[in-house]
């Protein structure tokens, strides 16, 4: 069996969980086994787990699991994996998934690969799976030599597809682990804008913006697109934009469908975080800017003219 932990921060099944379930279901299909989705609590959107291929839903509904702590969650997921004899445990490559992956791998004595981007292949020795390495400059195939595997799925790398199953829900009870961690507060940006690691559309800007007071045109473009905003590292370092917007080798790596970069030169460390984007649009007034080499579409002009014009053009088709 393939066990997928379907994350539900804020009591909601999110896109990354649906991708993970669909990935688990495709893996199960190729290996001739079944796929179970594990949820904590009673999240909204559980129907979608069946829609995207879960054969069964395992639910742990216990106040001890209200807040994510890696010690408590890893033990619970590993216990379920053992009880159900799961060959592969699938997580999302999110902040939660990353803090669980190593723990679960140790508990299950399983080989692990984080941030995978392909469906596992069955090999004689075990399974093999691909992930992007060297900040997107290469791909590596990992072979897992142990009986069990734990994988975390990179967002936006395997398309979620409907499979329409009608899973039954089984409620499980597991003994929570001890924890010395207490969550004091959570601060989240409000609104419907996707957080950067999950965003499909991203509008990003760099030092070419001259100063934080000019970001209105970037926000307006993001707004009409329904996109999330990002920035280059010096922009975050100078405090023009919040740190969580910093993308690149030392920021976050993203893989949106569309990445629009305005006033960013395209240094290798910046590209490292964005070069897996499906489509890149670069706006830069310097025809020699290295970013053009990594772009699908380029506009060589002053961003202060081009960005508002692009916003208008998008408004027209959205109207």
């Amino acid at each position: 069996m393939i066990l997928v932990y379907a994350e539900s921060p804020d009591g909601q099944i999110k896109k990354s969980a649906i991708e993970a379930v669909s990935y688990g279901a495709k893996t199960a299909q190729s290996m001739g086994t079944s796929c179970a989705a594990l949820v904590f609590g009673n999240p909204e959107g559980m129907d979608s787990l069946g829609t995207y291929g879960a054969d069964s839903i395992l639910q742990i509904n216990d106040a001890a699991f209200e807040k994510m702590d890696s010690q408590i969650y890893a033990k619970a997921i590993a216990d379920v994996a053992t009880e159900k004899n799961a060959q592969i445990v699938v997580l999302s490559h999110s902040s939660t998934g990353k803090s669980l992956l190593g723990r679960i791998a140790i508990r299950l004595n399983a080989g692990s690969v984080s941030g995978v981007s392909s469906i596992p292949n069955k090999e004689d020795q075990g399974i093999s799976v691909e992930k992007s390495v060297f900040s997107g400059k290469a791909l590596a195939t990992y072979q897992i030599n142990s009986e069990k595997a734990v994988l975390s799925l990179m967002g936006n790398s395997v398309k979620a597809e409907e499979m329409a199953k009608s899973p039954n829900i089984e409620t499980l009870s597991v003994t929570p682990a001890q924890s010395n961690v207490e969550i004091l507060e959570q601060n989240k940006q409000s609104g419907d804008i996707a957080p950067l690691p999950e965003a499909e559309l991203v509008v990003s800007a760099g030092r070419g913006m001259k100063g934080p007071e000019n970001w209105g045109i970037i926000e307006e473009l993001a707004n009409v697109l329904g996109a999330t905003t990002a920035c280059s590292r010096p922009v975050a370092d100078s405090g023009w934009r919040p740190h969580h917007e910093h993308v690149g080798q030392t920021g976050i790596a993203i893989k949106p469908n569309l990445y629009i970069a305005a006033g960013i030169s395209g240094a290798i460390q910046h590209l490292a975080g964005v070069n897996s984007s499906k489509c890149i649009v670069v706006i830069n007034k310097d025809p020699e800017a290295p970013f053009f080499k990594a772009a699908d579409y380029g506009i060589c002009a002053d961003l202060f003219d081009v960005v508002p014009r692009l916003t208008e053009a998008i408004k027209k088709v959205k109207a």
Partner: peptide, 14 residues
């Protein structure tokens, strides 16, 4: 610690 779309503050003993 950073979480998707924000952060959280945790207290750890030991």
């Amino acid at each position: 610690r950073d979480i998707e779309g924000g952060n959280e503050v945790a207290k750890v003993t030991g």
